[in-house]
Design a protein around this nucleic acid. Structure first.
Length: 271
DNA sequence: AGAGGTACCTGGCAGC
DNA sequence: TGCTGCCAGGTACCTC
C-alpha cells in the first residue's frame, strides 16, 4: 500500500524506537523478496547501532557506522516495531532484533519489497544513485519539470511517475495531483507550459504533505500493533472514483489505462 | 535517449 | 462453495 506518505509515516513511526538501539541479530525467514536478501545480513548487522532512519524517495535507509540497510516496501510491504517474542505470521519475512527485546519486523505478502545491505555511502548504491529529485524539496519546481520535459512526447502522468525525474510520486498521487492542477493525464509532457508545471508542483506538494499530516495520526500503529500498521485513507477526489460525479462539475470520473496502470480523471476539468 | 513492455508475487474480489 | 480470471498503491530492466 505504500506511497511516499506512507513510507514517510513509517519512517517517523519507527525511528524513535530503533535509533540508538543495538542490533543483536537479524532473522531472515524468507530471503526471496524482489531481490534476494543478502546471506551476510545477520553477520554484518549484528552488534551495530542504528544511527538514524532516513528516506530517499520510497527507500528507507537504516544507517549504522559500518553500513546501511536499504529497505523498499514495494506494493504490500510494511515495517513495525514489535516484541521480539511475538510469533511470526506467514508473510513476516525479516526481523531485525534489538537489545531491548524488540524487533523491526518486515512483512510483505507480495514480496515486491526489498532489503539491500551496503558498506558504501548509500546514495552511491545503484538503486539510489540515479533517482530524480525529492518531490518535497525545492529542487522539484516548475522550471525543473518544464526544462526536463522539452521535446518529450511521453504522457505527463508517466513523466511525473518516472523515478529518475522525480522520485516517490505513485499512481494515486499522480492522479490526484493532475486533477488538482486541471491537467489531462495523457497530455504530452513536452506541450505543457512552465506556468502549468508550477501549479502541478504546488498541488503535488500539497497533496503529499496533507497525506503525511494525516499519517501522523497513525504513528502509534507502527509500534506494538497486533495487526497491520494503520495506513491511512486520505480523502481522494478521482482515484478509484470511476463513474462518480466530479466534486467540481458533476461530470462522471473516467478510468483509462496508461502503461498498464489505471488512471482516473475528470474529462471536463482536466485539459 | 526515449518509449513501451515484461517481470517479480500473493490476496481479494467479481462473476459464473 | 469453489473455480477462474482479473486487478492491485512499484520499479528495474530489457528491447526496439
Amino acid at each position: 500500500m505504500p506511497e511516499l506518505p506512507e513510507v514517510e509515516t513509517t519512517r517517523r513511526g519507527i525511528a524513535p524506537h530503533i535509533t540508538g538501539r543495538q542490533v543483536t541479530r537479524v532473522i531472515v525467514r524468507n530471503p526471496n523478496l524482489r531481490w534476494k536478501v543478502p546471506a551476510r545480513l545477520n553477520r554484518e548487522m549484528s552488534g551495530q547501532v542504528i544511527n538514524g532512519v532516513t528516506r530517499r524517495g520510497k527507500y528507507l535507509l537504516l544507517t549504522t557506522s559500518v553500513g546501511t540497510a536499504i529497505v523498499h516496501l514495494g506494493m504490500s510491504g510494511s515495517l513495525r516495531v514489535i516484541d521480539a517474542s511475538a510469533p511470526p505470521d506467514k508473510h513476516d519475512h525479516i526481523d531485525i532484533v534489538f537489545d531491548d527485546k524488540r524487533a523491526l519486523r518486515f512483512t510483505d505478502p507480495r514480496r515486491f519489497g526489498s532489503l539491500h545491505w551496503t558498506r558504501r555511502p548509500p546514495l552511491q548504491h545503484r538503486l539510489l544513485s540515479k533517482l530524480g529529485v525529492e518531490p518535497l524539496s525545492a529542487a522539484f519546481n516548475g522550471d525543473y519539470l518544464h526544462r526536463i520535459s522539452r521535446g518529450r512526447k511521453v504522457a505527463v502522468k508517466q513523466l511525473i511517475m518516472n523515478s529518475h525525474i522525480v522520485t516517490g510520486i505513485g499512481n494515486i498521487y499522480a492522479c490526484e495531483a493532475l486533477y488538482m492542477a486541471g491537467i489531462y493525464p495523457k497530455r504530452a509532457a513536452g506541450r505543457i507550459s512552465e506556468k502549468k508545471y508550477e501549479l502541478l508542483v504546488e498541488v503535488s506538494k500539497e497533496v503529499l504533505n496533507d497525506a503525511i499530516a494525516a499519517g501522523g495520526t497513525t504513528l502509534r500503529d507502527f509500534v506494538n500493533g497486533n495487526g497491520e500498521p494503520g495506513y491511512f485513507k486520505l480523502h481522494l477526489n478521482v482515484y478509484g472514483k470511476t463513474g462518480e460525479p466530479c466534486i467540481s462539475c458533476r461530470e462522471p470520473i473516467r478510468e483509462i489505462r496508461q502503461g498498464q496502470r489505471s488512471t482516473f480523471y475528470c474529462p471536463v476539468c482536466q485539459k
